[in-house]
């Protein structure tokens, strides 16, 4: 016997708190930036997307009903868990993108900080985006921002972990649930992020992660009637028109973002509710 046989990880999907294989049985090879084989990952199909949306829709009312404090704490917990696994994530980033160990570790720290930054927004949103409105009558009139529902995310890929965190954290913090598509060129970070989420008390179905081809799945994200919003920052610009057209049927909110940390990322997937309340004596 010479040496030990390495136990390789199979990268699977993350749907409703579980790690299933794709229903299609398909897989694809993830290679390093030098073309070496890294791992096999699931090539998700539209039916995996359908299942993920069902999970996200089921989880949404409960997640939105959780207190802002609780949502913030859970997001902060995700940051804690990610911090503890910095080395693994840094190594995966280096393998996929070819960046130096130091740069990769920096990306992980930036991702942790970004999670904490978004976690802090959970209980401040009503003050930022809400208002008390003067009306001509004996009423208090409030406008409060509320979660939109189920939001899809197709994250940017140049920084695989940071881009992914910047896409999903603002969606989740306000009480939306998310279905996120990992990039097909560098999906390791996103899929490993599922392992962090799975140990962070995030309720099942709140974040679902698929790995697959953008070109195959993006149109299904866009046309799905039960997805209320979509972040397409990671899609090539020439596809934006077609995606927005496909999302018209249910008036899907489709956005792109450039800044990593901006409250606008949160507010893009919230809607305003106005409440009239009579003034007593």
């Amino acid at each position: 016997m010479s040496g030990r046989l390495e136990v390789m990880k199979t990268y699977k999907l993350y749907i409703n708190g579980a790690f299933p294989r794709t229903e299609s049985g398909r897989s694809f090879e993830i290679t390093s930036n030098k073309g070496e084989f890294l791992a096999n990952a699931c090539l998700a199909s539209r039916k995996d997307l359908r299942d993920a949306v069902v999970a996200a829709r089921t989880a949404q009312p409960g997640w939105a009903k959780a207190t802002a404090f609780n949502r913030g704490q859970i997001m902060y917990r995700i940051a804690e868990m990610l911090e503890g696994r910095s080395d693994q994530f840094a190594q995966e980033i280096s393998l996929q993108t070819g960046t130096s160990a130091k740069e990769s570790l920096q990306e992980v720290s930036d991702s942790v900080d970004l999670l904490v930054w978004y976690a802090g927004w959970s209980d401040k949103l009503p003050s930022l985006a809400g208002s008390t409105n003067p009306v001509s009558g004996p009423f208090y009139n409030f406008t409060v921002p509320e979660a939109l529902g189920v939001v899809g995310a197709i994250a940017t890929i140049d920084k695989p972990l940071l881009g992914f965190v910047a896409a999903v954290a603002p969606i989740l913090v306000s009480g939306n649930t998310a279905v996120a598509l990992a990039s097909s060129t560098a999906p390791l970070s996103a899929i490993s992020f599922a392992e962090v989420v799975a140990t962070s008390d995030l309720p099942h179905g709140v974040l679902n992660i698929l790995s697959g081809q953008q070109s195959e799945l993006a149109p299904w994200f866009a046309s799905h009637m039960d997805i209320d919003g979509l972040d397409i920052s990671g899609l090539p610009i020439d596809q934006h028109g077609a995606i927005k057209e496909a999302g018209v049927e249910n008036l899907k909110r489709i956005s792109t973002f450039t800044e990593l940390n901006e409250p606008g990322r949160i507010l893009a997937f919230m809607e305003a509710k106005t409440v009239w309340h009579p003034i007593g004596n």
């Binding site: 949306v53 299904w220 046309s223 799905h224 009637m225 039960d226 049927e249």
Partner: peptide
Amino acid sequence: DGYYASPNY
């Protein structure tokens, strides 16, 4: 329709 439906409808 060719796309996934929503319980809202």
